[in-house]
Write a protein that binds this DNA or RNA. Structure first.
Length: 479
RNA sequence: CGGGGCGUAGCGCAGUCCGGUCAGCGCACCGCGUUUGGGACGCGGGGGUCCCCGGUUCGAAUCCGGGCGCCCCGACCA
């Protein structure tokens, strides 16, 4: 079992994060450098995320398929920016069946190339479009510096790849899927996000436009948790995805891709977690309610366990993901801390006093200590539990939003910007030049995160160079 | 890839300077008993190629040479 206390967030935020991931049994280090094992508690969380996303993908007309892990190396040569972006981090298979391969194979770092190749075979006519395919899988990028969930050599994700007959339609798709991500992040994960464009330098390798959702972690650093790209005809030209349009003219298709990964788990931990551990939003929590039985003598135990079993059955039948912690050798106090660390949103205590009064004790994970405890009647318990879970879901979102908004600053001068990005985000006018962007990065290590879709009416002056600026952008240190 | 730290029981560590009762501690684990509304306790017990390879030595966790791995901090990235 874990040691008693986690390193506090204020003492050492990364240490807090690492300890929490290991102790909550979300993931563990694999024998291969940079790789992780996602443990059952972490994977169940991922499955719940997958369910929320997959439902939204299906609702927007997408279907799932699977493409291979190995991609001929030559495919990466076909799109100039793409190869430049990804070659440094490719893992390459050179041998198979004991022999050196004629053509080396890359372990996919993302699947634009192989999917582009396949789409070129499948598309001849405008009637074949659009193609709206998603795949769930893993990819590998040879990262230099890794962190569990945030950046690992292999990570699990989904990648949607679509091809369309017009630029407008493909752009619509790009925005639509970013909206899906934002909706999922805010409603299911209780993580407030900013939607917007990535700057030219932050753009995905090979994309004409990259959009993303950005959120603020408890240490005020920014994390991008989902992206959606518009490729124009770049990949279509590279892989000859062409079709006859309604005017009987040969035209290249317009493609998009969009992805969200297990990094979202890292976001969840860092957006909601506190010194006690995780806080799982009820909608995706692997366990929504844990029941801790409390008793002294065997006689009490029988009565308590009978009540516990009844409550368990009632909640389970009501569709709640509920677990009874019936470990005999551990004290209730230990169990309280244990489940708090794992982030279970609602704890239910049942002891002799509750049997007497036909009640149960509820303890909310989002409100620490006595304040979060209440005693409710066994009658109508399912409704009380559901209401409380809804309330926790909402309050997690509100708390995260408040924290984020409190830490977004509007510096008046460049000097002030430099101070502000040490403890939050700066929201400033920017002339959109790469030079000014680079200067901020050099001076502060903060980068442009997103250029929000929602922009003020007025124009302003660039916080860096003072020239006329049309856009406001978030500058922040990022993961 | 540079800088720092580390590798001894499942986990966290001491021991390494100065070679020889140094194979040890805490937690976890197993057994029995008492406990249980905010991190229980007593007694008994099991568990180790001291990261690997080589060298020095009568003798190496300890000294020397080489390797491997992991973590943390910096340049690239979902």
């Amino acid at each position: 079992m874990a040691d008693e206390k986690l390193t506090s967030q204020s003492e050492n935020f990364s240490e807090w994060y690492n300890q929490l991931v290991l102790r909550a049994e979300l993931a563990d280090y694999a024998p291969v450098r940079g790789c992780m094992v996602v443990r059952p508690y972490g994977w169940t969380l991922w499955e719940n995320m997958q369910a929320g996303l997959d439902r939204r993908f299906k609702e927007t007309g997408h279907v799932n398929a699977a493409f291979p892990t190995l991609i001929p190396m030559s495919f990466f040569e076909k799109e100039k920016d793409h190869v430049e972006g990804f070659s440094p981090e490719l893992a390459v298979v050179t041998h198979g069946g004991g022999k050196e391969l004629e053509e080396k194979l890359a372990v996919r770092p993302t699947s634009e190339t192989i999917i582009g190749y396949m789409y070129s075979k499948w598309v001849q006519s405008w009637r074949d479009l659009p193609i709206l395919i998603n795949q769930w899988g893993s990819v590998m990028r040879w990262e230099l510096r890794t962190r569990l969930f945030l950046r690992t050599a292999e990570f699990y994700w989904q990648e949607g790849h679509t091809a369309h007959a017009s630029a407008e339609e493909a752009k619509e798709e790009t925005y639509r899927m970013l909206d899906v991500y934002a909706d999922f992040a805010e409603n299911d994960c209780a993580i407030p996000v900013v939607k917007g464009y990535k700057s030219e330098t932050e753009r995905f390798a090979g994309a004409q436009m990259t959009t993303g959702i950005e959120s603020m972690m408890r240490d005020t650093k920014a994390l991008q948790s989902g992206t959606s790209h518009y490729f124009g005809q770049n990949f279509a030209k590279a892989f000859e995805i062409d079709f006859l349009n309604k005017d009987n003219e040969l035209e290249y298709a317009y493609t998009t891709s969009w992805g969200m990964s297990t990094r979202m788990i890292g976001a969840l931990i860092m957006v909601h977690g506190d010194d006690q551990g995780m806080k799982m939003p009820p909608k995706i929590a692997p366990i929504q309610v844990v029941i801790v039985p409390i008793y002294r003598k065997d006689k009490e135990k029988d009565a308590v366990m009978a009540a516990v079993d009844e409550v368990f059955a009632e909640l389970k039948a009501g569709g709640i993901r509920v677990k009874v912690d019936d470990r005999e050798q551990l004290s209730p106090g230990f169990k309280f801390h244990d489940w708090e660390m794992r982030g279970v949103p609602l704890r239910l205590e049942i002891g002799p006093k509750d049997i007497e009064k036909n009640s149960v004790a509820l303890a909310r994970r989002d409100i620490p200590g006595r304040e979060g405890k209440s005693f409710v009647s066994r009658l109508g318990l399912l409704d009380s539990v559901k209401e409380t879970l809804d309330s926790i879901q909402t309050s997690l979102f509100e708390a995260a939003k408040q924290f984020r908004d409190e830490n977004i600053h509007d510096p008046a001068t460049y000097e002030e910007l430099k101070e502000v990005v040490e403890k939050g985000w700066a929201f400033s006018y920017w002339c959109e030049s790469a030079e000014c962007e680079a200067k901020v990065k050099e001076d502060t290590k903060a980068t442009t995160r997103v250029i929000p879709f929602k922009q003020p009416e007025e124009e302003g002056t660039c916080i860096v160079c003072g020239k006329k600026a049309h856009k406001k952008v978030y500058f922040a240190k990022a993961y």
